[in-house]
Write a protein that binds this DNA or RNA. Structure first.
Length: 280
DNA sequence: ATACAGGTCTTAA
DNA sequence: TTAAGACCTGTA
């Protein structure tokens, strides 16, 4: 068991930020975090966090998973003084962190995410884990299912995952799993690549486009310069950044600011700011 | 009922 | 190279 005082860290906000679909809050207020085949139980009171794992596990894995070695105060301090909207968004989501999640899990998760809502995305992922993942018991005694390896999907008929409610995305997952299982795309190599290289490689996968590739780069490969543009972000940018988002100013960590904006819009924090266009 | 969810692929000009 | 349509499914 590990206890830490943490700034700019909120399990609740991370859980609701729409980057980790297998994290959930329990009845007792504790959080379950699943990543690949791992399981972690964690609690938070104010800025004090407790992680139910041993020192070695924490140092070798979870610390990086939560990006605890990064200084988010610095990123927030870079926000332009006059950018009221971005300052509000960052203040609103100040406990968000960009996680370092499992690469294969993120590929599949964001294939499923397209033209889909977060509730159903979570359910789809839960379904495929139950159907194809290994059943396990955590150190703390909870039953959970590991995320299935590519081989678990690789030989399936392309529409097999419709039974898990993936809809037309089933074939994206099966074909991509097949490509990875055959070694046509090597996940180990992706980890070593630059943002541009990794994105280009990911775009070769069937069902992976610009947006999904950027999500994978940001949430798994931790390329903080990836800036996924989805419907929410597109809307927010057209409302608040007529000349485009100032990526140059924030070069190298645009992705963090993207996540503040996404979270702000998702949670309805931005609604009061979209009043100005019609009234003369 | 119709539109919309953290889009991408296919097809046609 | 760009632009419309199709696409599973649940929810409001």
């Amino acid at each position: 068991m590990i206890t830490r005082q943490l700034e700019h860290f909120s399990l609740a906000q991370i859980c609701e930020s729409g980057q980790c679909f297998r994290m959930r809050v329990r009845e007792d207020g504790a959080y379950q975090i699943l990543s690949g085949s791992r399981f972690l139980l964690a609690e938070q009171r104010g800025d004090e966090c407790t992680f139910y794992c041993d020192e070695e596990d924490f140092e070798a894995f979870w610390k990086q998973y939560f990006s605890l070695d990064e200084n988010y105060s610095y990123y927030i301090a870079q926000i332009h003084e006059k950018d009221i909207y971005l300052k509000r968004a960052a203040e609103f989501g100040t406990g968000i962190r960009i996680l370092r999640q499992d690469l294969w899990e993120m590929i599949v998760s964001f294939l499923i995410s397209q033209q889909n809502n977060i509730i159903r995305i979570r359910r789809c992922i839960e379904n495929i884990c139950r159907a194809y993942g290994e059943r396990r018991i955590s150190e703390t005694g909870e039953v959970y299912y590991a995320f299935p390896e590519p081989e678990a999907f690789a030989e399936l008929p392309e529409d097999a995952l419709m039974e898990c409610n993936l809809g037309y995305r089933s074939k994206y997952v099966v074909r991509t799993a097949s490509a990875v299982a055959k070694g046509q795309v090597r996940l180990e190599n992706l980890q070593q690549m630059t943002y541009e290289e990794a994105k280009a490689e990911l775009l070769k996968l069937y069902g992976v486009g610009e947006k999904v590739a950027d999500c994978i780069c940001l949430f798994a490969l931790h390329h903080l310069q990836a800036f996924p543009v989805d419907t929410h972000i597109r809307q927010a940018l057209s409302n608040h950044y007529r000349k485009g988002f100032p990526k140059k100013r924030y070069h190298g960590f645009e992705g963090i600011l993207q996540q503040y904006i996404f979270f702000y819009e998702l949670m309805g924090g931005g609604v009061d700011e979209v009043w100005d266009s019609g009234a003369g």
